[in-house]
Computed example of a mutant assay.
Amino acid sequence: MEGTYVKNLICKVIYKSESNNWDNAVMEWEIIDCEEDEKCSEICICGKENIKYLYTIKNMCNGNILYPVGSSCITKFDRKDLREKTSLMESQFKLLHAVEEGKFLSLSVELFSRKLLLWLYEEGAIYSRWWRR
């Protein structure tokens, strides 16, 4: 079944891309948003059911949008920058849920990666006169 999902993904991405070649087509896309479906009721563009993280990706060459794309499909693009962005976005949801649940937050790797801390700093959520990039 995994093969069918990959074939569906490849067909839909190439159809909405300028390039007719997978290796080039994946370079045209960027993540522009992510939502979390705690009920896991959505279906990825590849056909996989029960996805939790719903990514919106945009083709930077022609403006086409694909939604919802699951995090497993994002990894199929085989791009380090997209894998890092999915990791960052999903860690933001994890942190948000910890705050919503009133959990005690400590600077541990369970909730805070270096990338997440840097993102929080760059977004203005953390201020430090000593922290410089």
Rank of each mutant, 00 (worst) to 15 (best):
81 D>T: 06
5 Y>H: 14
83 R>Q: 12
95 L>S: 05
27 M>P: 00
113 S>F: 01
49 E>A: 10
80 K>D: 09
71 S>T: 08
46 C>R: 05
97 H>T: 09
10 I>Y: 08
120 L>S: 07
117 L>T: 04
17 S>G: 03
50 N>D: 12
35 E>D: 11
12 K>L: 12
95 L>F: 02
61 C>Y: 06
67 Y>G: 02
14 I>T: 02
54 L>V: 01
109 V>W: 11
72 S>H: 15
126 I>V: 11
9 L>W: 01
120 L>G: 04
83 R>V: 12
117 L>A: 03
69 V>Y: 00
33 D>Y: 13
124 G>R: 09
19 S>C: 11
123 E>T: 10
81 D>M: 05
70 G>C: 14
66 L>F: 05
29 W>R: 06
50 N>P: 01
31 I>T: 01
126 I>A: 09
83 R>P: 01
89 M>W: 00
22 W>N: 05
16 K>H: 10
36 E>S: 09
51 I>P: 11
119 W>Y: 11
115 K>I: 02
94 K>N: 15
69 V>W: 00
113 S>V: 00
53 Y>P: 08
18 E>P: 02
9 L>G: 03
35 E>A: 13
69 V>T: 00
117 L>Q: 14
117 L>E: 06
71 S>R: 09
67 Y>V: 10
20 N>I: 05
36 E>F: 05
43 I>N: 10
1 M>D: 14
60 M>E: 14
62 N>S: 02
47 G>V: 07
76 K>I: 03
131 W>K: 07
43 I>W: 00
123 E>W: 04
2 E>L: 12
29 W>T: 09
85 K>N: 08
91 S>N: 15
23 D>G: 13
15 Y>E: 13
115 K>M: 08
85 K>Y: 04
66 L>A: 01
7 K>Y: 07
20 N>K: 14
39 K>S: 15
110 E>T: 04
45 I>A: 04
39 K>G: 10
109 V>P: 11
2 E>Y: 09
56 T>V: 06
15 Y>C: 02
33 D>I: 00
7 K>M: 12
85 K>M: 12
72 S>E: 13
104 F>D: 13
94 K>L: 15
102 G>V: 09
133 R>L: 06
12 K>M: 01
39 K>R: 15
109 V>K: 13
37 D>L: 10
25 A>F: 04
122 E>N: 14
108 S>R: 14
35 E>Y: 10
121 Y>W: 13
100 E>C: 11
84 E>T: 01
116 L>N: 07
43 I>C: 13
112 F>A: 05
94 K>T: 12
73 C>H: 03
57 I>L: 01
4 T>M: 11
131 W>L: 10
97 H>A: 10
32 I>T: 15
110 E>P: 00
98 A>G: 04
58 K>H: 03
60 M>G: 03
81 D>G: 00
123 E>L: 06
23 D>E: 15
13 V>D: 01
65 I>V: 08
97 H>S: 09
108 S>E: 14
75 T>E: 14
7 K>S: 12
124 G>Q: 08
64 N>T: 06
43 I>S: 11
121 Y>A: 05
57 I>M: 08
118 L>G: 03
78 D>Y: 10
57 I>H: 03
32 I>Y: 14
70 G>Q: 05
129 R>M: 08
